Amino acid sequence: MRVFLICLSVLLFTNCYEKARDCKDFKTGVFYSEVTIDDVLYKSTFKRSKTLQIEIYNNKVDSSSLRWINDCEVIFKTINPKSMADHKDIHLKILTTTDSSYTYEYSYVGETKKQKGIAYKSK
């Protein structure tokens, strides 16, 4: 009986710390994003429909087509690539969500090095 109570307690406490992932709210909308790479903070704004994302970074506009793998994962393909890096597709996975933001990780498709960032839904 004692072992049962200990196991039950452990299960109850671990369920309380499950991270939320309600990704459907972030498939479309207007957002701004923050990513820190080598101690440098990069910010961008973007507008996303179900199949297209238009991003503004350093006063430059970049458009990507979207292919959703599931509600929390998407592949970005640059529409008009200007460099070899732009030819590579990007895989983004939403890790956690709140009511107005999500934490994500992304990488070039097929690469193991991942970066993390936060996107905030604009009102």
Rank of each mutant, 00 (worst) to 15 (best):
V10M: 12
M84L: 07
F4I: 13
L92W: 03
R48F: 02
S44P: 00
Q115Y: 08
L52D: 09
K50L: 13
G110Y: 06
V61N: 06
I75N: 03
I79C: 03
Y17T: 11
S63G: 06
E111C: 03
K121P: 09
I79W: 04
Y104Q: 06
D25R: 11
G110H: 05
S107T: 10
K88P: 00
E105D: 14
D86P: 02
I56A: 08
S65I: 09
E73Q: 15
K50Y: 01
F26I: 03
E18D: 01
L11N: 13
N70T: 11
Y104S: 06
N59C: 05
K19C: 01
F76S: 08
F4D: 08
S107K: 05
C7A: 15
S49M: 02
Q53L: 09
Y106A: 07
S64A: 12
L41A: 15
H91P: 00
F76H: 13
V10L: 14
I69K: 10
G110K: 08
Y42S: 15
C72T: 05
S107C: 09
T14P: 02
H87Y: 08
K114M: 10
K82V: 05
L11R: 04
P81S: 08
K123F: 01
C7V: 11
I79N: 02
Y32S: 14
S9K: 04
Y104C: 06
I90P: 00
N58S: 13
V3D: 10
E105C: 06
S33T: 15
G29W: 05
L92E: 13
T14C: 12
S65N: 14
E18T: 14
K24P: 00
S65Y: 04
S122Y: 09
E111V: 03
L92S: 10
V30W: 01
H91C: 03
Y104A: 06
Y17E: 07
S63E: 15
K24E: 14
C16F: 12
K24V: 14
R2Y: 07
C16K: 06
Y106W: 12
